[in-house]
């Protein structure tokens, strides 16, 4: 694969996208998981699917749409869906998790309608469902690079506000922080990263990249910064290791990445168990 990267553009694209997504998804995932919003990624990825289906449908009927990356409309839908979730969360302030199944089923419903209007599944759509890293184009790569720069800059600049909002929302509000606007910026970043990650692991598996590395990291990290560090480390190992294994063993990259991150998670849980046992034995 290493030689291939220098030879083939599609491998370069896949590899570079993988590095960026392996970084971005766990980075935002940490904030999502600690706020107990793990499923938000699932809801938004299904909305993204509706956007992509809409784009493919329009492509079929309007020749002006051909050549426009379906990812763009997917992103528009994803951002729109994230705003809806926020609205619903304030409407159902005591049942905040309700927003997620509402948006998730709404996204799927809309997606299915668009697909049926286009007279069924085509291979293009299938590649969005399960990811197809080899289909990442140069423009996809550039879009994802732009998203990466924006997201990393925003997280660096708003780090302390995001931390405080995640840890203690009431205190954040009481200390006069612009909680609403910051949360708004955050949810838009999540929507963009989800749309971007879809190319690598596919809609059905996007949320795994945001949650599995974090789930492993939380078991062993001391403090929040370390949680972010380990999440990104596990994310990168999963994505790059997954791409590598998929290339050599001829497996589906999306699935391989997810299974690898579950494997890491199990290893971490096992490591922690052994460690606790050793610690206890030493203590006696």
């Amino acid at each position: 694969m290493i030689q291939g990267i220098f030879q083939y553009e599609f491998l370069q694209n896949a590899f570079l996208t993988g590095i960026m997504i392996g970084f971005l998804a766990p980075l935002l995932g940490v904030f999502i998981v600690v706020r107990r919003l793990s499923l938000i990624a699932d809801a938004l990825s299904h909305v993204t699917l509706a956007g992509i289906a809409a784009s493919l449908l329009m492509e079929k009927y309007f020749s002006a749409m051909t050549g426009i990356n379906p990812l763009y409309l997917g992103m528009v839908f994803s951002v729109g869906g994230s705003l809806f979730i926020e609205k619903l969360r304030s409407v159902y302030s005591h049942y905040q998790e309700l927003a997620i199944p509402i948006i998730l089923s709404g996204g799927i419903g809309l997606g299915v309608i668009f697909i049926s209007l286009a007279n069924g599944f085509n291979t293009d759509l299938f590649s969005y469902l399960f990811g197809s890293v080899s289909a990442v184009s140069r423009t996809d790569l550039m879009v994802i690079l732009a998203i990466s720069i924006i997201v990393v800059a925003a997280v660096l600049l708003l780090y302390k506000e995001l931390f405080l909002l995640s840890f203690d929302e009431e205190y954040a509000k009481a200390s006069g922080i612009a909680a609403k606007s910051i949360h708004f910026v955050f949810i838009i970043m999540v929507a963009l990263v989800i749309a971007a990650s879809m190319r690598v692991v596919g809609i059905l598996l996007v949320s795994s990249l945001m949650t599995l590395p974090v789930a492993a990291s939380i078991r062993i990290a001391k403090g929040f910064k370390q949680t972010i560090f380990f999440s990104i480390l596990f994310g990168e190992i999963s994505v790059l290791g997954g791409l590598f294994a998929a290339y050599h063993l001829d497996l589906a990259p999306g699935g391989t990445i997810v299974i690898l991150s579950i494997f890491i998670l199990l290893m971490v849980i096992f490591y922690k168990k052994i460690n606790v046992k050793i610690y206890k034995a030493g203590g006696v």
Binding site: I177, F224, Q226
Partner: peptide, 20 residues
């Protein structure tokens, strides 16, 4: 929540330091 005592106390400076 994975945060150290240091990180939690440091978050008390958020407003005073100002955004960005």
């Amino acid at each position: 929540f994975p945060a150290t005592v240091f990180e939690v106390v440091a978050s008390g400076l958020t407003k005073k330091m100002g955004i960005f």
